[in-house]
Design a protein around this nucleic acid. Structure first.
Length: 911
DNA sequence: CGCCCCCCCTAA
DNA sequence: TTAGTTAGGGGGGGCG
């Protein structure tokens, strides 16, 4: 039987561990495979007689099954030879943490290794199995199920890996609970009952794609609404449906922080008064439970995967708010049905339309959660990450990059006879964090501020990974500076020293090479993918490979990592900084000029004498950040090309030529790539720019406007700013229409100035700002607008928004500090409070737009238009002039005067 | 004012 | 920060 490994753990049988692999088979049945015979162990290094020490350990701890002297490398640093270590095998996995501290304290013991590896991970690593990977359990007959809730339970000690791209037919279930709060506030499990539970299924459960359990009689509803009189019956049915449906993936919206803890607590409350609810959910019949680890709730269900859609969406999509309502609207274009907390009691007490509406509302929430997961394909990436990194799906979903990187490295270390460090203690982490103050990052080139035409965007493909590969940077190659002959080492600009690959090829570079190679192969497979399903899996796989490739650098400078090397991290970035500086030098000085002739690009010495019809292109670097350079192409007089004189094809020719020359000068596999041609680029500041980009595709060029760092992409600015600025950027970049921009801004300013809260409802919505409530109120040293609102909401409703939430607010009219005038938009609407239009004009509209139009000499006085004040200079020019303005600003690089008076202003438009 | 710090969010 | 890293802009507000 072949099945895909969904989860793994172990249990004890006759005081010996038996690993359990949970999964789903290719024919759609849930499987639990029992694997006996695998033993827990750890390593230690020591001075003196290892055999003697081993005997001592064995005599002292009766949980030690076996001791063996082995040869291993230490985790960090290049070593010429392995050294003897002790491998300590215990009877039970839990013995390892039980005895490790005492063992570490014994005389002669230098260091203990791999004493904190979860048994299931140890198993996966040693056996070469992967989370979401396929295995074959042979033809073993089913064994007794016992407590296991699976279609099949088999026992096998001879599992083999199976090579298969497709995923098994997983079963998904979403759920959501409704509770009846006392007074319209937050419900609490000790008093507020669970009155409804909704489910959504994929595939359907007994013909139902949704089910709602309701704790009262409701008339006129479909047969997928089940009614109960007792809450405990409803809850028992909830657990019964889960175990009957037997889902692989359990999802919902904010279930980790709300629904699951609420149900667990509520069941406990009810059971204390003898309800006798059995909250069985696990495939091993385990009860639903959660763990609180420093304000974060962890939920895990044996044999299944719990996926809260909220954190996944938070991570993947940049939105102003993450309420289910907003997320559904933005990402699914679906409306959430809603009953306000204050109206719940009324709806619940109703026996007609209202209660039916309430039921539908509950049903919709589960539906939406499941739709989010499936339609946005939220799990694809995590499934691929599991398959590539090897860790279990639950761990990719609820963990970070550390887990994956460490699992991969430990797998590789194991193969090479190298032991893995334990996690650092708090003291070590703190010390490393201090050291990290000397960790420098990427270089950001000073932008040539203003508007430029014909800019080529070049970037390094996977810069940091390729740097590590090209220079053999690794934990396993790093040496103490000065300890090896010059000839044997590679020295980074930060003075890190690493042995050359012919002396020892680093583990990290090898892994990266493998991942990069797999990614290339996966992309090739994508081109000839048989069906959409296969394409999806392959696409997720290449994305997972990219994520992993880019995880290793960050990990190397992470203070809590098992492996940490400041020398390595600093070497990566220092080579990166050197590289971008070198690139700039090659482009500007060594290449300097490119000649376009007969549809090809030549260096000046390749081209020889300039002929009739040649196009001479002068290059300069207008900007660059870490791994990218923006190359400005000008004519031989160092001016912008005239209209239509420099085509996108010309850009591509120059771009590819430059990229190939730079690449040729670099060690393999570092590679500079031509990414896109920008017709116009507006550089505002470091990390702030907008481009009118043309990207090469299979059928011609695809254009788009790309904005980085400016207010349009920032969530702490209001929608009005984004919309206004987006329009201005489009006018400037595509049309070269400064006048139009000014008109647009003046019109909007005028509308805001004369804002009628009743009439201009749509604009008022666009005035909402959001900021994330990121830490406990007491740890804020300064006042913050969103904190004011948090306090207001808490005072009024008794409920404090939770940390991590984004808080919407508007600025109301009145005296005093801005932070004190922040208010909840909801409250403002209900109480008809006046907004501070001046704040919006002066702080939200004018400064961002001035930063852009200031380049063309447009100032705040021009933009700050008031239709009620006649006599201000009127703004109008012909359309030819509009483009001319832009062209001239580009061509001359002139920064027009910024004076506020009208004369200067009009003179700009008739140079 | 200018300077500095805190805070938020983004680029890479 | 149990949660990869540093670089950097820009707003608000307190203080000299």
């Amino acid at each position: 039987m072949n099945f895909q490994i969904l989860d793994a753990d172990y249990f004890r049988e006759n005081e010996r561990p038996v690993v359990r692999l949970f999964g789903r088979s290719d024919n759609g049945e849930s499987v639990c495979c029992l694997v006996p015979g695998f033993e827990p162990y750890f390593y230690l290094s020591a001075s003196g007689d290892l055999k003697k020490l081993g005997q001592e350990i064995k005599d002292r701890f009766d949980v030690v099954k076996d001791i063996e002297v082995v040869e291993r490398f230490e985790p960090i640093g290049y070593q010429e030879t392995k050294q003897p270590m002790l491998k300590v095998t215990t009877f039970d996995p839990r013995n390892v943490p039980e005895i490790r501290d005492e063992v570490a304290g014994m005389i002669g013991v230098r260091e203990i290794y791999e004493t904190d590896i979860l048994f299931r991970n140890r198993f996966l690593i040693d056996k070469g199995f992967k989370g979401m990977g396929w295995v074959s359990a042979g033809e073993d007959a089913d064994v007794a199920k016992g407590d296991l809730l699976c279609d099949h339970v088999v026992r096998s000690s001879e599992l083999t890996e199976v090579d298969r791209i497709a995923n098994s037919p997983l079963k998904y279930m979403a759920f959501d609970i409704e509770c009846l709060p006392h007074d319209g506030g937050m419900p609490t499990p000790d008093v507020s009952p669970i009155i409804m539970v909704s489910f959504a299924f994929e595939p359907a459960y007994k013909g139902h794609s949704t089910i709602v359990l309701v704790k009262k009689e409701v008339e006129g509803v479909d047969d997928d609404v089940e009614m109960f009189t007792k809450e405990s019956d409803l809850l028992n049915r909830f657990f019964e449906i889960i175990t009957e449906y037997d889902p692989d993936v359990i999802t919902g919206y904010n279930i980790n922080d709300f629904d699951v803890p609420y149900i667990v607590d509520r069941v406990n409350v009810l059971n204390e008064s003898g309800a006798g609810i059995k909250p069985i959910v696990g495939r091993d019949s385990r009860n639903l439970s959660y763990r609180k680890i420093i304000s974060r709730t962890m939920v895990s269900i044996p044999g299944r995967v719990v996926v809260d859609a909220l954190p996944l969406i938070r991570q993947q999509f940049s939105l102003k708010r993450y309420t289910l309502r907003n997320v559904s609207k933005e990402l699914l274009d679906r409306e959430k049905l809603d009953v306000a907390p204050a109206d719940m009691q009324e709806h619940w007490n109703d026996n007609g339309e209202k209660i039916r509406k309430f039921v539908d509302y509950a049903r919709r929430d589960s539906e939406l959660a499941l739709e989010l997961l499936l339609e946005l394909k939220l799990l694809d990436k995590y499934i691929a990450l599991s398959r590539v990194s090897g860790i279990l799906l639950q761990d990719t979903v609820s963990g970070g990059q550390t887990n994956m990187v460490e699992h991969i490295l430990m797998t590789e270390f194991g193969k090479q006879g190298r032991v893995m460090s334990t996690k650092p203690d708090d003291e070590t982490s703190a010390y490393r964090r201090k050291q990290n103050e000397s960790l420098k990052g990427g270089a950001v080139l000073e932008p040539e501020k203003g508007l430029h035409e014909n800019v080529i965007v070049l970037d390094y493909k996977s810069l940091y990974p390729t740097i590590m590969m090209a220079h053999n940077l690794c934990y396993t190659t790093v040496v103490k500076p000065g300890s090896y002959p010059e000839n044997d080492i590679i020295r980074s600009p930060s003075k890190g020293e690493f042995v050359k690959p012919d002396i020892f090829k680093g583990v990290v570079p090898s892994v990266l090479e493998y991942l990069l190679d797999q990614r290339v192969k996966t992309k090739q497979l994508m081109k000839k993918a048989g069906d959409e399903g296969e394409y999806r899996v392959l696409d997720a796989t290449q994305l997972a490979l990219k994520i992993l490739l880019n995880s290793f650098y960050g990990y190397s400078g992470y203070a809590r990592a098992r492996l940490y090397s400041l020398q390595m991290a600093n070497s990566v970035t220092s080579i990166g900084r050197d590289n971008i500086a070198r690139t700039e030098d090659i482009v500007c000085n060594r290449i300097g000029t490119v000649v376009l002739r007969d549809n090809a690009a030549y260096l000046t010495d390749e081209a020889g004498e300039i002929r009739e019809g040649d196009k001479v292109v002068k290059l300069s670097v207008a900007y660059g950040d870490t791994d990218s350079v923006f190359v400005h192409c000008k004519n031989d007089c160092d001016e912008e090309f005239a209209e239509d004189e420099f085509s996108l094809e010309d850009s591509a020719l120059v771009g590819r030529k430059v990229a190939s020359i730079v690449t040729a000068s670099l060690p393999d596999p570092m590679e500079l790539e031509f990414e896109a041609a920008a017709k116009r680029v507006l550089l505002v500041a470091k990390k702030r720019y907008a481009q009118w980009l043309f990207e090469p595709t299979n059928d011609g060029w695809k254009d788009k406007i790309k904005v980085k760092g400016l207010e349009t992409v920032r969530r702490d600015w209001c929608e009005l700013t984004s919309k206004m600025l987006n329009r201005v950027l489009e006018l400037v970049l595509k049309e070269g229409d400064i006048d139009g921009s000014v008109h647009h801004v003046r019109e909007l300013v005028d509308r805001v100035r004369n804002l009628d809260v009743q009439k201009d409802v749509d604009i008022v919505e666009d005035l909402v700002l959001t900021k994330s409530f990121s830490k406990s109120p007491s740890s804020y040293k300064n006042k913050q607008p969103h904190l004011t609102v948090v306090e207001n909401i808490e005072r009024r409703t008794g409920v404090r928004p939770s940390i991590g939430e984004r808080i919407p607010f508007v600025i109301t009219a009145g005296k005093g500090l801005f932070v004190d005038r922040a208010e909840d938009p909801e409250y403002v609407r209900e109480h008809n409070i006046t907004l501070d239009v001046d704040y919006y004009i002066q702080k939200q509209m004018l400064p961002p737009v001035e930063r852009i139009l200031g380049v063309f000499g447009v100032d705040v006085a021009t933009l700050n238009h008031d239709s009620k004040q006649k006599g201000l200079f009127d703004f109008d020019t012909s359309s030819e002039e509009k483009v001319e303005t832009v062209k001239r600003v580009c061509r001359t690089g002139e920064q027009p005067s910024q004076q506020a008076d009208q004369k200067t202003q009009s003179s700009l438009f008739d140079f």
